Simulated scan of single mutants.
Amino acid sequence: MEKIRVENLTKIFGKHPHKALEELKKGKNREEIFNQTHHTVGIGGVSFSVFEGETFVIMGLSGSGKSTLIRCLNLLNKPTDGKIFVDDENILDYDKKRLRQFRQDKIAMVFQHFGLFSHRTVLENVQFGLEVKGMEKEERRTKSLEMLKAVGLEGWEDHMISALSGGMKQRVGLARALANEPEIILMDEPFSALDPLIRRDMHTELLDLQAKLRKTIIFITHDVNEAFKLGDRIAVLKDGEMVQIGTPEEILENPANEYITNFIEDIDRSRVIKAENIMRRRVLKIGRNTSAKIALEILTDSDFDHGFVTDRENNRIHGVVDADDLLRAIKEKLSIEAVMHTNFVAVREDTYVKEILEIASETKYPVAVINEQGQYVGRIQRAALLKSLV
């Protein structure tokens, strides 16, 4: 379901932005408009949608307009032109009272430099939004402690902000945003000031929280690996314009232009590509109770070297066989179960290539792919695994 829809959004900085807007609509670019009017086009004619419960990452280099854009979504920046629909309501039509309710109840923001009150304790920082809303003291304490536990800061509620590391401060900022139970969370480069190891921990923390809470998150970053790790979909901005929107896999496989190609050149593909993206969906299944002779005919009539042995009831894998195993079974009058090998590797559809590479060396057989119910849905040959990295 569409949660946010942005239509032709433009933000121009300067004393007379609408004069510059006229030049933008004539097709002039950012540089031409600045030289002519001394106005800066932060974003120009940007359109996109964000679905409920997804993490939508806006990625771009410094000066691309990404922070300008995210601040338009809660009207910290007042757009020069365009529309912003949230649940089919254009928030640009809100009066002051309605806008205040929108900011208090529906949307929250996590800032790059934490935005915490140094004179308040951890708990008091998290409670701040609830206090503004007029929530009773005990209720806001209970809610805030719950959020601190969710972000891994249980027991730190009475500490002052100065006693916390950078990663812990950002956890406080996240807990404060979550305490208001917003439907939408805006995150403006929240982890860019953190050390690499702490950033990695925060990525894991955010992914775990999102799996539980399914908030609509708009996340800003200039780090392509961060974008591809966290984003369900990614939008790439350049000079205030949207260049491409797609899933990480779509952007990797079909970059829109040379700029995107260069942008993603150094990305670690093993952390982006999943089993479902490279598996072969046409699977060869051999029933546990199939005779070895029939199984051999099935195998030799296919283009597979191995067949996974499954049961008919729930399509779960029990082992793997090749032609030599089946010939032995025929010769010695054995069942398929007696000759099958059980040291195969099976991974879920959403397993990243990096993880598959680490375990694929444990077996000489193709990697089996299973769904959430444990059913056999595909296989990955070693060649496909290596091809995915280039």
Rank of each mutant, 00 (worst) to 15 (best):
L206Y: 05
Y94A: 11
S118C: 11
R140S: 08
E139A: 11
M279G: 02
F48Q: 02
L230V: 01
N343H: 14
R288N: 14
V353Y: 02
A235M: 09
E226Q: 06
I294S: 15
V236G: 03
K28E: 08
S192N: 03
T80E: 06
V320F: 02
L153Y: 09
P79D: 02
D87M: 12
V321E: 04
N74S: 06
L357Y: 13
F128R: 07
L194M: 03
S192R: 01
L178T: 06
N257C: 06
H38Q: 15
V243H: 00
A346G: 04
A368W: 04
N35Q: 12
L284I: 10
H38N: 15
L296N: 05
H18K: 15
P17A: 11
A20C: 13
G374I: 07
A360G: 06
V46S: 00
D188L: 02
E131D: 10
T247D: 07
K137Y: 11
S162K: 15
T80F: 03
R98V: 13
E52Q: 15
N314M: 14
R282L: 13
P182N: 03
N29I: 07
F56W: 07
V243A: 04
I267R: 11
R281Y: 12
S64V: 01
E22L: 12
R199Q: 01
S388Y: 06
E183M: 07
S67E: 09
S144K: 05
I91G: 05
I370G: 04
R71A: 08
H341T: 13
N125G: 09
S165A: 12
I356F: 09
L9Y: 03
I370V: 15
F111P: 08
V321T: 01
R5V: 02
A256P: 00
G65C: 00
